[in-house]
Design a protein around this nucleic acid. Structure first.
Lengths: 355, 355
DNA sequence: TTGTAAGCGTTATCAT
DNA sequence: ATGATAACGCTTACAA
């Protein structure tokens, strides 16, 4: 019943076997500053016996005594969402060489349990917090509690439109601009839009970027060709919405030669609708998505999309948190959101309209 | 520089404030057996002051003293692989109510660093280990070391074809059988195959299942319509392989009305090849995949595929590890692999051949 | 019904 | 160049 930790070799065991004191062993095994004054032979010997005995330091004990957990909490909103997952990979990669370990907590898109997860992270004494949010994440008040302790926290992936929370996001405005520019340059003029939910600032910024492009190029964006999806809590609702709203657009009998979707899943819904209507992508209608999720490259036709540099976003967030964790709480000078540039990935779902 | 843990409220703080001893506080806050003999008022009072002070127990200290980390190590081979990710979700869900926390370690498809990650997990004193392997995972010798300590370990996702390692997998043979059966029942007789790498026992078992079906139904499997992909280390190589090998098949001018792919990514490669050849799926050629990865449902045409119950697999693995962790090391009676039944998800990429 | 004290495996501050 | 010793925050016999 009692699964004794005593199965494990401890530092004291090593010390006894090697014939030195625990302190010396600790110092040697950690390459602590004081290790410079330890005889080379001793070091050698200690290292060998440690390995021979199969010694592995106990993380809890170490963390307890040293008052540093060497961990960064990562609160992720849906581990089965490739968007979150790619950011996560960026985080892991940047953490890899630092000696810090990510402690990953998956909220399963459940906003209610948020506080609970946050608590678990705090109990683990993580030294910083990265929140990886997808578009389903609605802002909660919980983070303010943390912020008031000036705990190093950063949100990555979602534009919360909140100036007290540091975040790393893609430049949504530029992305919207670029998407429309791509279609415009191909020669499209009658363009339909399936936008994200009303309150979603990501969606609004993208739309703003598109309107900016339009007004700069005297392109009229006919409101009758614009659809907006409802706020949703289901991860796959984007597909359904894309499908339905595109059907709606199609039924309206208003001609369009291209469609801009809120994101890739929405775009795939649109492709489905167009195809089911007996039309073809891109021959009859071009479609462009947003994100460059892994889906985009592998479907046929491969989806043209505006890429969010998710790994980079993860890396930037990590760099900031690490710095903040090491600098101390004083230094939290609340800079504005960090925005990374999107890139249009031109693939097979867009082409010039046939005359 | 020294980010003192002393920011945190400790149990002693609570005890002082409440006017009780640390032990009483501990007992109350943990609802330990002895708490039954503590005056209700006292409990109430202690709980309140704890909350008022914002007390959160230190996980390290607790784990150190109690000799139980209440964590299960999860070694995952590629966090950006939806296959791994869905299994992971199953694990998380089953762990959720148990008080155990998963400690997730991503190996990034890098077999060399495996040992290092394993060590980190051990240093954290995880009480059990779940290895989530995708098909890129090649068996290493490392696990035997762990096994000889009879540490509760289980592999989920990949059939390692090794009888000393417990594993939870889909019934690949049954899956292969079902895939072919589906096509056969639709009326297909000239069927092409893009199999997985030679050494991969997952692939071999599926193929065995297909041959079993064929021989039971007097269906000849023409070897000229069979292609086999090379072993690969790149996560997306399945797509490329599917694309190339299907092109090859197409060039051979041997007629086939349906194609069985090793997995979904391979299938999508096949769809791409067929489409690029000016043919259409499923009108000219049906395609069936394996896995039911998230891609399958959202591409157009939606992919018919043999579903692996990945969440269930995660759940089964978790249940076993938990039991083993609590039972103690004696009980590891090396049962055979646990196999879950696959399900054919019929969607739009398969239909009867046109006469 | 509650308090005392020991110790989990480390690291850090002194001594020597 | 190395060793004693005291914490870190918590749980748990055992005492009272």
């Amino acid at each position: 019943m009692l699964r004794p930790r005593s199965k494990h070799v401890t530092l004291v065991d090593v010390a006894r076997k090697a014939g030195f004191s625990p302190s010396t062993v600790s110092i040697v095994l950690n390459d602590a500053p004081l290790a410079r004054h330890v005889a080379a032979r001793t070091k050698q010997h200690i290292r060998e016996t440690a390995k021979a005995l199969g010694y592995h330091p106990d993380a809890s004990a170490r963390s307890l005594r040293s008052r540093r957990s060497s961990t960064i909490g990562v609160l992720i909103f849906d581990i089965s969402d490739p968007f979150c997952t790619l950011i996560l990979r960026g985080i892991e990669r940047s953490l890899d060489s630092t000696g810090y370990l990510p402690v990953i907590m998956d909220a399963h898109n459940d906003h209610k349990q948020l506080e609970g997860y946050l608590q678990l992270l705090m109990e683990r004494r993580v030294e910083g917090l990265i929140v990886v949010a997808n578009w389903l994440f609605e802002e909660g008040g919980v983070f303010f509690e943390i912020l008031k302790d000036s705990f190093p926290t950063i949100v990555v992936g979602r534009d919360l439109g909140h100036d007290r929370i540091r975040s790393v996001i893609v430049d949504n405005d530029a992305g919207g601009y670029a998407a429309l520019e791509h279609l415009y340059n191909l020669g499209h003029r009658k363009i339909a839009f399936v936008l994200g939910p009303d309150k979603l600032s990501d969606s609004n910024r993208r739309w703003a970027g598109m309107r900016r492009f339009a007004s700069e190029h005297n392109l009229t964006l006919d409101p009758r060709r614009v659809r907006r999806m409802d706020a949703a809590l289901d991860p796959t609702s984007g597909f359904e919405a894309g499908l339905q709203l595109t059907n709606d657009l199609l039924r309206s009998r208003l001609k369009f030669t291209a469609l801009v979707a809120f994101d890739d899943l929405t775009a795939l819904g649109a492709v489905r609708a167009i195809t089911q209507a007996g039309l073809s992508v891109p021959a009859d209608c071009s479609v462009i998505g947003f994100d460059d999720s892994p889906l985009a490259a592998f479907c046929t036709p491969a989806l043209t999309t505006v890429r969010q540099p998710m790994e980079d976003m993860g890396a930037v967030a990590t760099a900031w948190v690490l710095k903040a964790a090491q600098t101390g709480p004083g230094e939290n000078s609340l800079p504005p959101s960090h925005m990374l540039a999107p890139v249009v990935m031109v693939r097979d779902s867009t082409r010039p309209p046939h005359s």
